[in-house]
Amino acid sequence: MTIRAATNEDITNMIELGHKVYVESRFSHLGYDIDKIKHGLEAFILLHANGSHLALLAENADGRIIGGFLGAIEEYFFTTDKSANSILIWVDPDYRGSSTAIKLIDIFKQWAVKKGAKEINILVSSGVKIGSTDRFFRRLGFVQSGGNYSMTLG
């Protein structure tokens, strides 16, 4: 497996894998706007090049994208100390249980240290396998610091 920076040439494949993950998530009742995603990924990849954001992809031995990670570094509202926050982390369901997510998170942690972050936060809101996701992050040394709550309207 290879972990590398995402490029604009990867966007179509990222959108396809993203849809595969989206359909199993709690967001599947919402629209999946490919044009909006494309423009958002283009902007994110540009921010990665500028150093304030991280856009990673994991590829299998055949060069197929099997996961990705989007993150950002920012200051908290109340301090100039920085935190590194996940925006999205996704792994092809066929590769869950492999080292894909661990490797993506490890590179995120290394990047956060280089950027001067005091902590990292993995934000989970997909609603997919909540219990096993919790156990996974705890095994990696994370502690729960809150929760995500949602309510469908209409």
Rank of each mutant, 00 (worst) to 15 (best):
A5K: 14
T7F: 01
N8L: 08
N8M: 09
I11Q: 07
T12A: 08
T12V: 06
N13V: 02
I15F: 03
L17C: 04
L17Q: 05
Y22C: 02
R26M: 03
R26C: 06
F27N: 08
H29V: 13
K38L: 04
K38E: 12
K38Q: 12
E42D: 12
A43H: 13
F44D: 03
L46I: 11
L46F: 05
H48G: 14
A49C: 08
G51S: 04
S52D: 15
S52W: 08
N60F: 06
A61R: 10
A61F: 11
G63P: 10
G67E: 03
I73G: 00
E75C: 13
Y76K: 13
Y76H: 09
F78M: 05
T79S: 15
V91N: 08
P93C: 01
R96C: 10
S99P: 04
S99R: 12
T100D: 07
A101G: 10
I102P: 00
K103S: 12
L104W: 06
L104G: 09
Q110C: 08
W111F: 04
K115N: 12
G116W: 05
K118I: 12
L123T: 13
K129L: 08
K129Y: 01
I130A: 07
S132V: 12
D134I: 10
F136R: 09
R138S: 11
R139C: 01
L140C: 04
M151N: 03
T152Y: 13
